[in-house]
Nucleic acid binder design. Sequence first.
DNA 1: AGAGGTACCTGGCAGC
DNA 2: TGCTGCCAGGTACCTC
Length: 271
Amino acid sequence: MPELPEVETTRRGIAPHITGRTVSRVIVRESRLRWPVPRRLASQLAGQAIEHVGRRAKYLLLETAGGTLILHLGMSGSLRIIDSGLAATRHDHVDLVLDNGRSLRFTDPRRFGSLHWTTRPPETHRLLRDLGPEPLGAAFSGEHLHGLSRGRQVAVKNFIMNSHVVVGIGNIYASEALYMAGIHPARAAGRISLKKYGLLAEVVKEVLQDAIAAGGTTLRDFVNGEGKPGYFRQHLNVYGKADEPCISCRVPIREIRIGQRSTFYCPKCQR
DNA sequence: AGAGGTACCTGGCAGC
DNA sequence: TGCTGCCAGGTACCTC
């Protein structure tokens, strides 16, 4: 599921249920995730009180006095609050059993997700250390994109999906943002003006914020465990809309592959 | 240094 | 119905 809005929606969904709670037990049913779940994770996390649920890029940070759990949902991961007695099914890989009869359950069919434990400041962790700025933060701007992109031949879509440039822009929102900014996704990153990058940075913030706002509507379902968070297709202008008319000019949306990923754009509106 | 490809995994779906 | 092949929203890591 998750692009940044889904991860943030997840964070907001679970935070009220786990903040201040103590992890009484950790059940690891499947440790073969993107990276093996550390063998000592269960003993390190058990007994710790969750003080804060943070996020850096698409990593969720469950902070305790003794360390931080760094959790990534990968491509198919989800987290739910469940009653601790609820039977686990095939892809329910990890439960954090809480001290109130409920559990935080990590489910991930494709097992691209991951769990790490660190006792150091999480931002110094190998996975987080070299990441670019948050797209919704002040450090992400047209100047930032313009400065980093000079001389780069890479397609602008790949450029903005590079986590060293800016985090949290996945395949869907990359297409959406470039459409909103009127930039052809295959354009060389180094040949885009400061002005265009200013617009791109603005629409990135806008599209992510809108999606996060829309994500709020699925929170109840999500917390009740009655289904996974919905995907907000109704808000998308180009993604998945090959051959449908552009909402602005009616010219059919085109689908191409850039860096092995599906890419959608309007050949008239995006140059 | 930058660009591009590969790998990790399962499930769903189109096409035969 | 059943098989095969392809595709999927992520991203670290490898090679050139």
